[in-house]
Design a binder for these strands. Structure first.
Lengths: 337, 337
DNA sequence: ATGAAAGCGCTAACAC
DNA sequence: GTGTTAGCGCTTTCAT
């Protein structure tokens, strides 16, 4: 048998309530009593039963972070900041992987872990507005990335259109004239891709740079392999592009790989721009220019929003939309060295 | 108020027990009754309270995975396999980050999350044998990586000495004569580093290749930046090494970066070998030769061991030590293309 | 096949 | 400053 609060109380010759007070750091306990209780706790190696506490308090102190794939560096880095930020609020993070599959994302918002978690942060990939409207579960939730619909859900977003425009303008400012893009997605789920594409197109248009549809390559996912493939396609175009904006760093790293295989020099022949600022890009050859979202801020903002909902201070506040900062970081893949 | 099992029972005109039976898939429920209950559940949007269930059953269905840093690709990839493997056993994974700090690792094995988790898988970096001996917490635990001591803890390991020897032999087989190493660690915690160093030394010795102590560079951590720095040091040696075995892929990727900065060709001038087979290495320029542990198997084995402990089938079995498979993968950084 | 009663370990509310 | 009582929502045991 595990030792319970009752056992401690008996050994310390006090009531269970007093033990509870000590465990929870309640102020008004006589020093003498406290010490006696603490000694009993140590002696019995007592640990509070968190299930019982949760049952009583109605909160578990656990929040879920649901991402498509934990081993995509962007999400791994995000998860790292989340776990740290949550710890700062006395919360523990439980991780779900959705694989970017709509049914798994629906399960997550539907409350599959309900009653185990106090709140949920989800980075959706395939979820639709209808899925959100159908949601009946009342667990506090914060969505990462693009606002999918205008229902009552808090969002933490980055201004993808503007960031993509700036990325493209950076390439234009280097004198590039045939600028390709990698990462467009036709599927309904590709909200982020569409916004980044829009930013890219806006930049070309306002700079008067011609937009060649053949220079826009799609990518099923945002992985290295997709970037490598897409780059192969762009290399089949004549004349060749002299710059490429990739909608994620992984895509860009894949593209760099293809360029290296073909002996094409970066940035001399083709400049490459990424998005996400994952650590890989800081050590690739060449190092990767990118848009760097403030991931720490993103995690902190999400936890803040969640906490507001948990504390009820979100009551008549309406759904929030919070923007995360980002900056453009120019490295070798665009400006050389 | 959240709807409870009792509410469902009332609506369906049955006892709480019957609802519980339905929820838990108990066989002997009349079809008619079951349907009535299921309808009530749907109508009230009922979700069982997992805290209450856990309290009653004494199990939570949650296991913790504690790794140094979630954003190190090796651990991220591991975490991915863990979450997937655990889901296959109906378990949810909660992630802790230790930062490789001894006090945090001690907290983890000391039961900081005790009573919230049924079991724990820890990848220790700084933990000592004494820390393990002092452990009083009885939560089932599996340790990843080197066996730290001979106390009663299950381990899942890979044969680091042998793997490192094979890695070095691979370089020797390519005719390399001045073979360096990056990643040695003097600190007590560097068990893994010491074993890989031993394998490296064994290989040199049995092949009759001279071992130059100046060609062994240490690394505080196993990150890209450490690898980049260490490579700088090796490049100060005369004559230059013609191959380097890095104790992790991240170290190797950092080393590649330094070599690229110096215009040194890989593998022509210097061949580079890594360890871990993280995805980055499959897309770096050049692609990275490495030792590839079977991470999926590793995750599966860990969950197996944990499950055995959870089910008590581990009772009089003694501490287990399970070896995970690995293979050597030769890519461009050693054999060119 | 279903129900009644008890209790898992804790803390909120209140009494003293 | 400390004790008493009650009950969170569920499952287990035993009865029918």
């Amino acid at each position: 048998m595990r030792t319970t609060l009752r056992d401690v109380a008996e050994l310390a010759q006090v009531s269970p309530k007093t033990v509870s007070n000590v465990v929870n750091g309640y102020i008004h306990v006589r020093k003498e009593t406290r010490e006696r209780v603490e000694q009993a706790i140590a002696e019995l190696n007592y640990r509070p039963n968190l299930s019982a506490r949760s049952l009583r308090q109605g909160r578990t102190g656990v929040i879920a972070l649901a991402v498509p794939e934990l081993d995509q560096p962007y999400f791994a880095e995000l998860a790292r900041h989340f776990v740290a930020a949550a710890a700062g609020h006395g919360l523990t993070v439980l991780v779900d992987q959705t694989e970017g599959a709509r049914d798994r994302e629906r399960l997550v918002i539907g409350g599959i872990r309900d009653q185990l978690i106090d709140g949920l942060v989800l980075s959706p990939l395939a979820l639709t507005a209808a899925d959100l409207d159908e949601r009946t579960d009342a667990t506090p939730m914060v969505l990462l990335g693009e606002r999918i619909h205008h229902g009552p859900a808090d969002h933490v977003v980055i201004d993808n259109v503007r960031a993509a425009r700036e990325a493209t303008e950076h390439l234009i400012s280097l004198g590039r004239k045939r600028i390709g893009a990698i990462g467009s997605q036709k599927v309904a789920a590709g909200v982020t891709a569409r916004l980044r594409l829009r930013g890219y197109q806006q930049a070309l248009k306002s700079a008067g740079v011609s937009a060649d549809k053949n220079l826009v390559a799609s990518a099923t996912r945002f992985h290295r392999a997709d970037g490598a493939e897409a780059m192969e396609l762009l290399l089949a175009q004549k004349p060749l592009p002299d710059a490429v904006f990739c909608f994620s760093d992984l895509l860009a790293l894949g593209a760099l790989r293809t360029l290296a295989s073909h002996g094409i020099r970066v940035p001399d022949d083709i400049a490459v721009m990424g998005f996400d600022d994952i650590e890989d890009g800081r050590f690739s050859t060449p190092t990767l220019s990118t848009i760097s979202p403030d991931k720490e801020q993103l995690a902190a903002q999400s936890i803040e929003l969640l906490n507001a909902q948990l504390n009820g201070s979100a009551a008549d506040r309406g759904p929030q939309e919070v923007y995360t900062n980002y900056e453009l970081i120019a490295r070798e893949s665009t400006i050389g060295r």
